[in-house]
């Protein structure tokens, strides 16, 4: 699959990219909301992992701009667990919400793969 990772934390982008590439997926990375939006429109990925709090455009703003035009599965990730949960994420147009910190990065990628599998 083609996966887009949008997060302003370098280490998170790097580690997620590693695992996806280990599993032979094509990965695009963006380090802020604006860049993420552009790459989303350019590459039409099957999966987008989108951080909530970023400088410039936030995850929620990116989702709003993309609107209904996308068929990508979206996983929202955030450290602000108090404010965002699964319900809120689906209201925003995301398919899944995963709280940071991750307990295990392989689990995260497993869930992403399943999401895309099931959606087919």
């Amino acid at each position: 699959m083609r996966a887009l990772i949008v997060d302003d934390e370098d280490l998170i982008r790097t580690s997620l990219k590693r695992v996806f590439e280990m599993r032979h997926h094509e990965v695009f990375v963006a380090e802020n909301g604006q860049q993420g939006l552009e790459m989303w429109q350019a590459h039409d990925p099957e999966l987008v992992i989108l951080d909530m709090l970023m400088p410039g455009l936030t995850g929620a703003q990116v989702l709003k701009k993309i609107g209904a035009q996308t068929r990508s599965k979206v996983i929202l990730i955030s450290a602000y667990t108090g404010e965002y949960d699964v319900k809120k994420a689906s209201e925003l147009g995301a398919t899944l919400f995963i709280a940071k910190p991750f307990q295990n990065i392989f689990d995260v990628v497993d869930r992403a793969e399943k999401l895309v599998e099931n959606g087919k």
Binding site: E9, D10, L11, I12, S15, Y80, K100, P101, F106
Partner: peptide
């Protein structure tokens, strides 16, 4: 919140 992000990265990378 400031620590959680890099810490997630550190831990994930270590796991990889």
């Amino acid at each position: 919140h400031e620590l959680n992000n890099p810490l997630t990265g550190v831990r994930s990378l270590a796991q990889i």
